[in-house]
Design a protein around this nucleic acid. Structure first.
Lengths: 229, 229
DNA sequence: TCAAAAGTGTTCTTTCTACACCCATGC
DNA sequence: GCATGGGTGTAGAAAGAACACTTTTGA
């Protein structure tokens, strides 16, 4: 479960009370029940154990199956990436906390590796999908959104170009609202929202695209053309 | 296990002799042994059961865990995408065969869905990685390579542009050899090979790239600059 | 009126697609 | 010679990065 908290990308971890790996921090999760699939299971575990219900997005990462990944009897984990918007503020049990992903505490088992693969997936998808919706609050200014992207990507992002890219892809729309400037002055910032709050791939074919239904079609046809969806 | 055979994208399937789903075609696979991880298991299963050893690439797709995906006791499958180059010609047992992916025979359980997700993954990765190496033979002409891409992507691909994109990305190199033309004449075709035969991502950041270490660096620095790798 | 923050206009570069053209060979 | 397939040259288009400039506010 990742999210932006206080301008940093953080992961929700839970401190183990008992052996094995007592005292170390662990990803939330648990055993798969007989009548559920892995995704339902993840949502159930999070709801039950850490009371996180405002999950904007969940997707499978990968199976971790090294026979020695945990001590004792062999266990296999299906790891998930979950994202919580920064305006959701779930009540957390005493033994769970948001940890900065750049400075993880000692983690249990292979959980550090899982966190790393989650971060990579998030970074990649921010680039070619609308996944920002799952990190950002319902409404935001461009500069706030920019800070979310900076935190998640780990490199500078220009507010100007961020707005342009997301707008050109029809991912953002203005809410109409504005936010007044602080004491220092400045123009009031417009509020935006994501047009969709489900995952949408915006840039499927980076290259080797199917031939453009453009030039040729337009030439041959004319204004009576019917364009199929 | 996917590969190009006779100019078509095909999947290696195995016909079930016994219930459940007797007579239907099934993806090769089997139970995970106690001392192996899922990837070793896949390679072992393929080597043992269908004698496919020339596998150029294997990667995890996803876990299929619907409690009702198979009859009887609940089973969970970790699905993999494996690719065999078109010049590898493994001996196949009598009950296995390459099936055209566009015209699958009746398949067992949820295997048709798994095949579909494998194809999607393959298409996407052909676009932004060097994954072509895992479909193509060791040396090939551009037009032969083009046919592989057409079969896998399912849409027209221009040989001209394919060569240019792959060359610009330093994925192809000439072997020096050529292939004489057929009876109809024509210029002899040059042979190429992939420079790497392991997966390489060539287009990681489609957008929201980290700032270019270009213009600014060049201006501020000058000829004494040291460029770090 | 000036500083600060937000937002727009414009240019530059890169990278791909489209297409015209040249090359080497068999008949 | 000339048809055929292979390969290159080059213009056009699209998308994003960079940056100058305008807008709107507080003090």
């Amino acid at each position: 479960m990742l999210g932006i908290r206080d301008g940093r990308l953080r992961v929700l971890l839970w401190q183990r009370a008992l052996a094995p790996d007592a005292g170390r921090w662990s990803l939330p999760g648990g055993r798969l029940a007989a009548d559920e699939d892995v995704e339902s299971s993840v949502r159930r575990q999070l709801a039950e154990k850490v009371d996180v219900r405002e999950i904007a997005h969940v997707e499978q990462l990968s199976v971790f199956s090294d026979p020695h990944r945990t001590p004792g009897p062999r266990t296999i984990a299906t790891a998930f990436l979950g994202l919580v918007p920064s305006d959701a503020d779930p009540e957390l049990p005493a033994d769970t906390a948001w940890h900065e992903i750049e400075a993880l505490p000692p983690t249990a088992f292979d959980h550090a590796g899982i966190v790393e693969s989650a971060r990579e997936r998030l970074r990649a998808k921010l680039s070619y999908t609308n996944l920002g919706f799952a990190l950002a609050p319902a409404a935001f200014t461009i500069s706030a959104l920019r800070e979310h992207y900076v935190a998640a990507l780990g490199h500078p992002v220009s507010a100007t170009n961020l707005q342009r890219v997301l707008t050109r892809r029809d991912l953002l729309e203005p809410t109409g609202g504005t936010v007044p400037p602080g004491r220092a002055g400045g123009r009031p910032a417009a509020l935006f929202r994501f047009t969709d709050r489900t995952l949408r791939v915006t840039d499927a074919f980076a290259v080797l695209r199917p031939p453009a239904r453009g030039a040729a079609d337009r030439r041959s046809g004319g204004p009576t053309d019917v364009v199929l969806p």
